[in-house]
Amino acid sequence: MGTRRKAREAALQFLFQDDFCSKMEQDPADLEERFDHFREMYQVNRKARAYAIELLRNTLINRQDIDDIIRRCATNWRLERIAYCDRNLLRIAVSEILYSDDVPHQVAINEAVEIAKRYGSAESPSFVNGILDAVKKHIPA
């Protein structure tokens, strides 16, 4: 498994955990401190940490815009009703599509689908793929 995949998985686990924390604890300004605490409890590959922080920073700072895009593309799904794992995986992938110039859109989508196979339900990979395909059509290449 590549370093970036490990970073994406760490970011997913961090965001999943964050969903269960008080909103007051989720200030992007103290992200690195919270991530250090997270990685003390869970093993995060040393080489993957920098990219995980970059993904998390982009995702958390731009969360409202990312969520708006997901809402537009997830027809017949309210964002709040999407499973925690799938929702956070979508956020990470949309963040990569929008803010990571060195990651082709299709790579971000493929990585999200592969991670969904590992962490999501049986339906997660096709669900994530469908939403991200719709996102890709709405975003200039």
Rank of each mutant, 00 (worst) to 15 (best):
A48C: 05
Q106N: 11
V103Y: 01
A11L: 02
M41R: 14
W77T: 08
V103M: 08
R8E: 12
I66D: 03
A108I: 01
N58G: 12
R118P: 04
L90C: 09
F20A: 00
D19E: 13
N110R: 15
L55Q: 08
A50C: 00
A93W: 01
S124C: 14
D133F: 04
P104V: 07
R71D: 10
F38A: 02
R46Y: 06
Y51M: 11
L56V: 07
Y84W: 07
L31M: 08
D65L: 15
E32H: 03
D30I: 10
L79K: 04
L132V: 08
I61F: 07
S124R: 12
D68C: 08
N58Y: 11
R39H: 02
I92M: 12
L12V: 04
D68A: 14
R46G: 01
D19F: 01
R46K: 13
A93T: 05
E123Q: 12
P28F: 06
R34Q: 03
V128P: 13
P125S: 14
A7L: 02
P125G: 14
R87M: 07
W77D: 11
G120L: 10
R91P: 02
K47I: 00
D101I: 00
S100F: 04
R49A: 09
K47V: 00
S22F: 00
P28G: 06
A74K: 02
P28V: 05
L31E: 10
H138E: 14
Q26D: 07
Q13R: 09
H37Q: 14
E111N: 14
A48E: 04
S100P: 00
P140L: 05
D65Q: 15
D65I: 12
D133P: 05
Q13N: 03
D18S: 07
L89W: 10
R34W: 00
R71T: 12
V107P: 01
E32Q: 08
N76G: 03
D86Q: 04
R81D: 15
L55R: 06
H138P: 00
R39N: 01
S124I: 13
N45D: 15
R72Y: 01
P104D: 03
A10Y: 01
R39T: 08
Q64D: 03
D27W: 09
N110V: 03
